[in-house]
Design a protein around this nucleic acid. Structure first.
Length: 383
DNA sequence: AAGAATAGCAACCGCACAAGC
DNA sequence: CGCTTGTGCGGTTGCTATTCT
């Protein structure tokens, strides 16, 4: 290789030169010297300026901190946009990006990217390396509002899910989106051969009546009933081998199946109890009548609030250790305004809408796959 | 209130390359 | 042509302030 040896004087830690944070006195010496004599030779500068530092350290201190045209303080929205858009074109070429941001150094931009922008993009479901929608879906379990927003968009305009105008929606559309999403998931559950859902899954379904209106609820249970009858009649799939028969373990009280069943689980942590026809019957019997349906969840802002409004007999109690189910429930009960304002803020923050479009594309493109993942979490085999 | 964990940031490290001698 | 020097660059480290438990 042509160039500087890695063991040069500047990099050597055994040179006796000072390292670490600069003192105000050192800063003053450096600034004073450069203002007076310039910096023709960084190597010679420290000695001439009376500094016990290497030339490289002096150069970095000057270019990244002491230069008079350095702009300090928070990055503006406009600067954020410039960084993101140029990063998508240039990658980690921080100095090239810095040329578009007068007064900002490559180091400052790099730090800002690593500590703020990268996280921001990840939370929006955008891969910060490729600037494309993320292809792993675990994050959606942690950010249900993105998924809900995607579902809102889809339910409002399924033919053109990319239309940005659809994001200014009211709570009716949001509620509709919840139903739409639930339908998608249940349709896939019901089109999936056995093994039947786990008890956890059944518990989730047990909570459906408090989440959607009565018509949709009846429709969903009809799907479920039909599907299970077909399974019983051998029309779809075959009875799974090797699953314990949960009907012998489950007490008669529905819907707290998982909670009670937990006490009977074998030591094997991979064990997932499966639902039996008896469990389905308990579920069907638990469907509330139209006049007993509690208020729609969009009236409640938190899970706790919801549960306090709903009788314990009308909602199941998913395992407290099931994070995916907690995320799911958060999705279903999330305050509509919170979700809407999340996207409104996002859109308002952007000048061209590019970021928002990326986020929309990202959230929507992962929706279908997320549904599959939910199904897997539910413990149902997926084709 | 105190210790632990985390976030933010300045600075350093080591490699690479271009230009000049 | 080969060496030296200056500079660019990206990754990493370590200190400090803040937040969490």
């Amino acid at each position: 290789m042509v160039g500087k040896s890695p063991n040069d004087e500047e990099s050597s830690s055994a040179s006796g030169l000072k390292k670490g944070p600069w003192t105000p006195e050192e800063d003053q010496k450096l600034v004073h010297y450069i203002q007076r004599y310039g910096h023709e030779s960084w190597r010679a500068l420290p000695k001439l300026a009376g500094l016990n530092r290497c030339g490289k350290s002096c150069r970095l201190r000057w270019t990244n901190y002491l230069r008079p045209d350095i702009k300090r303080g928070k990055f503006s929205q406009e600067e954020e946009q410039i960084i993101i858009s140029h990063h998508s074109l240039l990658g980690n070429k921080w100095s090239a990006i810095a040329t578009h941001l007068p007064g900002r150094t490559d180091n400052e931009i790099k730090n800002f990217w690593n500590t703020h922008l990268k996280k921001k993009l990840l939370q929006m479901g955008i891969d910060p390396v490729t600037h494309r929608p993320r292809t792993d879906f675990n994050y959606l379990l942690n950010f249900p509002q993105q998924l809900l927003a995607a579902a809102v968009n889809f339910s409002c305009n399924p033919m053109n899910p990319w239309d940005i105008n659809d994001f200014r929606l009211g709570s009716d559309a949001t509620q509709e989106a919840k139903i739409q999403l639930l339908h998608n998931i249940l349709l896939q559950v019901l089109n999936t051969p056995p093994p039947p859902p786990t008890m956890e899954a059944l518990n989730l379904l047990g909570s459906v009546p408090v989440l959607v209106d009565h018509d949709h609820q009846q429709q969903l249970y009809e799907y479920l009933r039909l599907n299970y009858n077909q399974f019983e009649e051998g029309l779809i799939g075959s009875s799974p081998i090797g699953y314990p028969n949960p009907s012998t373990q489950i007490p008669s009280t529905f819907p707290n199946l998982q909670q009670v069943n937990d006490h009977h689980q074998p030591a094997n942590s991979n064990y997932q109890p499966r639902a039996s026809s008896k469990d389905y019957n308990r579920l069907f019997n638990a469907i509330p009548t139209a006049n007993s349906i509690p208020a729609l969840v969009s009236d409640c802002s938190t899970v706790n609030e919801m549960e306090s409004k709903v009788s314990p007999n009308e909602i199941s109690n998913p395992s407290s250790t099931s994070t995916s189910f907690e995320a799911w429930r958060e999705l279903m009960v999330m305050d509509d305004e919170a979700g809407d304002s999340y996207w409104r803020d996002l859109i308002d923050q952007t000048t061209s809408g590019t970021m928002a479009n990326l986020a929309v594309e990202s959230a929507f493109s992962t929706l279908n796959s997320f549904v599959k993942k939910v199904i897997l979490h539910l413990g149902v085999g997926f084709v």
